[in-house]
Amino acid sequence: MALLVAGLVIFLGLHLLPLLAPGLRASAAARLGEGPWKGAFALLSLVGFALLVVGYGEARQGAVTLLYAPPVWTRHLAYLLTLVAFILLLAPYTGRNHFRARFGHPMVLGAKSWALAHLLANGFLHDLLLFGGFLAWGVLSFILLRRRDRALGRAPVTPNWGSTLVTILAGGVAWFAFAKWLHPMWIGVAIFPG
Rank of each mutant, 00 (worst) to 15 (best):
V5K: 06
A6Q: 06
G7R: 08
V9G: 07
F11T: 10
F11Y: 14
L12R: 06
L12Y: 12
L12N: 10
L14H: 09
L14V: 03
L17M: 14
L19E: 12
L19N: 11
L20M: 11
P22W: 14
G23V: 09
G23E: 05
G23C: 07
L24K: 05
L24M: 12
L24Q: 02
L24N: 02
R25K: 15
S27H: 06
S27N: 03
S27A: 13
S27C: 00
A28S: 13
R31L: 14
G33R: 06
G33D: 04
E34S: 11
G35H: 05
G35E: 04
W37Q: 03
G39M: 11
A40T: 11
F41T: 02
F41Y: 15
S45L: 06
L46I: 09
F49I: 01
A50V: 12
A50K: 00
L51G: 03
L51C: 13
V53N: 03
G55H: 13
Y56F: 15
Y56L: 09
A59T: 05
G62S: 15
V64Q: 15
L66D: 03
L66K: 11
Y68H: 14
P71T: 09
P71Q: 05
V72A: 14
W73C: 02
R75Q: 13
H76P: 01
H76A: 13
A78E: 03
L80V: 15
L80I: 14
L80Q: 12
L81F: 14
T82V: 15
L89Y: 12
L90M: 12
A91Q: 05
A91F: 04
P92D: 07
T94W: 10
T94M: 14
N97M: 09
H98G: 10
R100Y: 00
R100A: 05
A101W: 01
A101K: 05
G104A: 13
H105W: 03
P106M: 07
P106R: 09
M107D: 01
V108E: 04
G110W: 13
A111T: 11
A111L: 15
K112D: 01
W114G: 01
A115H: 06
A115W: 10
A115I: 08
L120P: 08
L120F: 09
A121R: 11
N122K: 11
F124G: 00
F124W: 05
F124V: 00
L125M: 08
H126R: 06
D127P: 08
A136Q: 02
W137P: 01
W137M: 04
G138L: 00
L140E: 00
S141A: 15
F142R: 02
L144F: 11
L144H: 07
L145N: 02
L145A: 03
R147F: 01
D149C: 00
R150K: 14
R150D: 10
R150V: 09
L152Q: 14
L152V: 07
L152S: 08
G153V: 10
A155H: 11
A155C: 00
A155R: 14
P156Q: 01
P156V: 02
P156E: 05
P159A: 15
T164V: 08
T164W: 07
T167A: 15
A170S: 13
A170R: 04
G171I: 06
G172I: 08
W175S: 08
F178H: 11
A179G: 10
A179W: 08
K180T: 01
M185Q: 08
M185K: 10
W186L: 15
W186K: 08
G188W: 13
V189Q: 12
A190C: 02
F192E: 02
F192T: 00
